[in-house]
């Protein structure tokens, strides 16, 4: 790699590799670019096949119309709320359990750890799960988005592995100063674990934002509908909505929105938050995968 001069064969190899990876890049990137240009094109002059590389008569009015649609804002708030609250709750429970499981003084430590890890592999099945949630009165409740995922066994293993790698001298000196377990957890362990907690935040927040099965199965209340399920419903009946938007009061400036543009714009609204935070979260989830790869 340190050689300065590039031989002809090497050059050929590099060019082939670059072509290969440019193709791969396009395969992974173009779909996102496509929904982006479709969502900002003028709906009247665009069809799914006429648009390829550049937006046609760029406009932001599609977004305005989509956000005026009934329920989109509310769903956005619900999805945001479950992402923020759900992530904080998961973070708290998971890190606290990870901490206590590293403390030798905890009674039945081995049992608790096994109990938590085995839960990763036990799946009662969709219907038994559904019936249990219903009997716990979690049907049509916001809590069904938060509580079932409040403890992630996978993240538990990540955090516990990380805490075990911290030098124990830190905890011991705090204990000599008279600190109790909770203040050791809160004031020492949590700040030190920030790198791995960031990975947990990324995994959990993405999972919460993208989650909709719980909504589909257990929440019929429109006020609690997540953005993902709203998108799915719009996808399945985009034709009706577009005609509604044409005849209803939503259309202000007389330009209509087609089913195709409508689908693409809602998709963009749902994808955008991920695209925006993605560059910032990349280094954290890579760290999480590394630790996960070592410990499983």
């Amino acid at each position: 790699m340190t050689k300065k001069k590039i031989s002809g064969r090497e050059m050929l190899f590099q060019i082939c590799m670059i072509i290969l990876f440019v193709v791969l890049f396009i395969i992974c990137f173009y779909p996102f670019y496509y929904i982006f240009i479709a969502s900002i094109s003028n709906p009247q002059s665009v069809t799914s096949t006429s648009i390829r590389f550049l937006p046609i008569q760029p406009t932001l009015s599609n977004f305005r119309k989509v956000l005026e649609l009934n329920g989109i804002w509310r769903s956005f708030i619900v999805s945001l709320a479950r992402t923020v609250i759900g992530t904080m709750v998961t973070l708290l429970f998971t890190s606290m359990l990870a901490f206590t499981l590293t403390q030798k003084e905890l009674p039945c430590r081995k049992f608790f750890y096994r109990f938590a890890v085995v839960s990763m592999y036990i799946n009662a099945g969709l219907i038994p799960w559904y019936l249990t949630m219903r009997s716990l009165h979690l049907k049509d409740s916001f809590l069904v988005y938060i509580l079932p995922t409040a403890l992630s066994a996978y993240c538990l293993v990540l955090v516990k592995t990380y805490i075990e790698s911290i030098p124990t001298a830190l905890e011991e000196s705090a204990r000599i100063d008279g600190a109790g377990y909770f203040s050791i957890y809160w004031k020492i362990i949590l700040p030190v674990c920030m790198p791995i907690l960031a990975a947990v935040i990324v995994f959990t927040a993405v999972g919460q934002w993208n989650s909709w099965t719980d909504n589909l199965l257990l929440v019929d209340d429109n006020n609690l509908r997540t953005l993902q399920l709203t998108l799915l419903e719009y996808l399945n009946r985009a034709n009706n909505i577009a005609s509604q938007a044409r005849t209803g009061g939503a259309v202000v400036d007389g330009s209509n929105i087609t089913p195709f543009t409508l689908r693409m714009t809602i998709t963009m609204v749902v994808t955008l938050p991920i695209l925006i935070v993605y560059p910032f979260m990349q280094k954290y989830f890579i760290k999480g995968i590394m630790i996960g790869a070592v410990k499983g």
């Binding site: 499981l101 905890l106 608790f112 938590a116 409040a150 403890l151």
Partner: peptide
């Protein structure tokens, strides 16, 4: 103190992972 910090999480696992097996 440790048990107090552990048991809520264990309860969550019990209710949301093992309890559905009763179904």
């Amino acid at each position: 103190v440790l048990l107090g910090m552990t048991l809520p999480s264990i309860l969550l696992i019990t209710v949301f992972c093992y309890l559905p097996m009763s179904g």
